[in-house]
Design a protein around this nucleic acid. Sequence first.
DNA 1: TTTCGAACGATAACTTTTATCGTTTAGACT
DNA 2: AGTCTAAACGATAAAAGTTATCGTTCGAAA
Lengths: 140, 140
Amino acid sequence: MLVDASRPFRELCRENGIAVTHQRQVLYETMQAMHGHPSPEKVYARVKKKVPAISLATVYKNIHLFVESGVFREVSLHHGSVRVEMNREPHHHMVCSKCKKITDIGEKELGLQPQRKRLPGGFLVERYAVDVIGVCAKCQ
Amino acid sequence: MLVDASRPFRELCRENGIAVTHQRQVLYETMQAMHGHPSPEKVYARVKKKVPAISLATVYKNIHLFVESGVFREVSLHHGSVRVEMNREPHHHMVCSKCKKITDIGEKELGLQPQRKRLPGGFLVERYAVDVIGVCAKCQ
DNA sequence: TTTCGAACGATAACTTTTATCGTTTAGACT
DNA sequence: AGTCTAAACGATAAAAGTTATCGTTCGAAA
């Protein structure tokens, strides 16, 4: 007798109030089996092997749905275009997860102390860039 | 007698081995006068007031040039497309400034201690996302 | 089983960024 | 100052990534 692998996904959907569709389920399982930080195109290429008729739009729509539901997370908040830093002082960022607004916070105010200069894999540290993800006063 | 505001820019260009053009200089001065985290379009709109004939392509080309020269810095490294996180463990990222590769690093390995839950401006913290910017072993 | 809103696929449209190319200009060398 | 050449410019086409539209299909509740 085969294991019903669709059970956990059905529950996940019920918890988040989203419908269970075949595409959605295969997409979820495909993504779960991936590693690293895949782009929508990479996910599309992979899921297409199991559901050849799937549309790229469906992949995008469902990745957004998963991210909004908290099933998956974005690597870093995407601001639509390149942003240039104008603040010369050492600082980090507070990013509102609701309105996406970026506010600077001084290194000292954040209370982050210097870290190691060498990390696993022989990675040589230049600097630390901290994004504090949360909710700004206006959106609370 | 007027101050020669172009002097520092000329020196900056000489240090970085880039030519001094009128567009480049006005762009630099315009950007210096801006605050926050402007997009190329925002910069373009502003610089166009002083050099109406400037092309958006010139703005893009020179923002890149400035970023490559270290004159300005990107708010966060731009990966061209949305990236989804597949690693369920609490972790952060090491980003190679040469090849742009993202490698995960566990929260414990990074040695980041818990921080405050409230920050200036009434910002409510959900989580910290740390990007360690540096050079990976392969690119060193 | 029927029904209806949600989700789907195909694809056009939109946004952001890059590439192309003919013209102009900065800077080096007279 | 005049000449030269590579670099930079402006206009714009093209590419890449993403979103919107719309007619069709499907999930799930009655």
